[in-house]
Design a protein around this nucleic acid. Sequence first.
DNA 1: CTGAAAGCGCTTACAG
DNA 2: CTGAAAGCGCTTACAG
Lengths: 346, 346
Amino acid sequence: MNKNKPTSFDIAHRAGVSQSTVSRALRNSPQVKQETIELVHRIAKELNYKVDKAASSLRSQNSATLALLLFEDPTSDDSLINPFFHAMLGSITRACASHGQDLLISFQQLSDDWHADYEDSHKADGLILLGYGDAIDYEPKLKQLAAQGTRFVRWGPQTGSDLGLVIGCDNHQGGYDATAHLLSLGHRRIAFIGTASNHYPEFFQRYQGYVQAQVQHGVAIDPTLQQDAITNEEAGFQATLDLLDRVSGLDAIFAASDLIAIGAIQALKSRGLKVPNDVAVVGFDDIQIARYSSPPLTTVRQDTGLAGKVLVETLLSLIKGDEVAAPTIPTQLIIRRSCHTPDDGQ
Amino acid sequence: MNKNKPTSFDIAHRAGVSQSTVSRALRNSPQVKQETIELVHRIAKELNYKVDKAASSLRSQNSATLALLLFEDPTSDDSLINPFFHAMLGSITRACASHGQDLLISFQQLSDDWHADYEDSHKADGLILLGYGDAIDYEPKLKQLAAQGTRFVRWGPQTGSDLGLVIGCDNHQGGYDATAHLLSLGHRRIAFIGTASNHYPEFFQRYQGYVQAQVQHGVAIDPTLQQDAITNEEAGFQATLDLLDRVSGLDAIFAASDLIAIGAIQALKSRGLKVPNDVAVVGFDDIQIARYSSPPLTTVRQDTGLAGKVLVETLLSLIKGDEVAAPTIPTQLIIRRSCHTPDDGQ
DNA sequence: CTGAAAGCGCTTACAG
DNA sequence: CTGAAAGCGCTTACAG
């Protein structure tokens, strides 16, 4: 079947033109007569001809392929993927398709040589990095990539002194909005669950938004209301239990991610506390599960559809050598039933 | 940076051997002296050399790449991916990595020419098809792939007269186990929610297991207890409301997928029915959400870890030209709180 | 607007 | 165990 795969020479022969002209015509070169272009395309279709990607990449030194590298904390169960990544994956896939790029996907270990694996081998023209993990562990890797001249974009926290091009949402604003919403509902003892340090800068930015909202509303910050957790349900569950053992009078939780929030809700229920009647909960991400948790989760949506598009387009600009900026993706507060709304009598 | 990418000639020069020998040494050919192999590898490492994938693919006519094509019903919201696919994706990714294969990923429309897109262009040596959708719509596509000699494997229902190589779980047994479990808890009015026809053969197989279990337990089949639904929460929600309007005395639901089950639970709650006290619910898949639904969902687990490995390894055998069989992946009943267990006093 | 020719960086017979 | 040579199927100067 594949033995007789047609080449551009076959088309040239049938069309009565040279192979060079076929090559140009297939890419709709303005140099080629419209008539010839149409003829070549017609014959190509008849023969089921497709440009050989390997030959094209080799000659043009351009793979028209991007690589998406996913990574998580090495401690996390590696059969699970953060649902937030899935949404990003869908969006990145579509953006690649619309730009004629193929997408390689891989789960990476911190120990691997990402540059070598993808750029040196010409498998991909650039990398998209996606992951939650300890930013401190991760930093040397980024430095190495930058030093190697790897073209990459990364989803993450924008700090102003970023290694490489970082595209992220407005974590601070999102944290502010979530907290302001809880304050507007009358809550005053609002916990923050999530590791708020430079190890998890996205969470830290959300925490800072949480602090700012309270300061602006004249609520004193009680540092004992912050409890560390990485982004999975287990961690959220355990952190909430620890928090409940430590503090009193809690009336709301702002969880640094939806996964943490879902664990928190389970923990609250396990202690006989009702959500939102006893404790309101707000998450972050708006993953698919958020709508189907019980109660449905109020959360801060990250626009994954836009994010994927921006990641891909920014990377393509970078590869082309254009000047590129790193836009910030806005967030949006999505109100559901995990906290009372003013007009919600429940 | 990439301008001076080293080639096998650079290594040859430094090592004082020919380029052919370098090429052999890099692939650890038994023809090459161990000493030479080691020398070549050492120099390659020093130079950060990586075999150029395009050149290698072009010459060897082998891309060492598989393509994963995902598709869903065109009607479904295309920003969502069935969580079951995510688990498969993780598993397939890992299996590819362990076999030295790159993985291209794409969301496909039924209208696209999958063979041309991947095999004719030498982007991939074979395809993995993953998707839920109407099997009848899908069939002409499979016939076309088979006719074109495309090497592909597919996750789906094994019917005995499959187009191409189909790997799937034991849907019938899974349906039987779920239903037998409900029967053992004393339920007698068990609904099946999911389209049970040749349009959705996996669901149909699960339905047949459901029927068989009841027959064996001497329970008469009431066809009005079956309600169509495709695999998403919306459909499950709506189907359950319709069912509740139509039939009386319902004491359990076997949903053809977890997404349907989650929609069903929402619907039951919206009618003031308690799960499992008023109506028990069992799902199918054991997606991640199942553990965090409220109540946690009893379901039939498909072993996605094994499935991904088997898909990849079967496809690689097919590409190599080996004789291949299509194994069936076993299922496992996972008991949680969405139906009473005999020793669960709740 | 088109063609002849070179060459991308490998792998693989072929010869020794 | 190693080397010289051909060639995978394109793209792209170069020449007209």
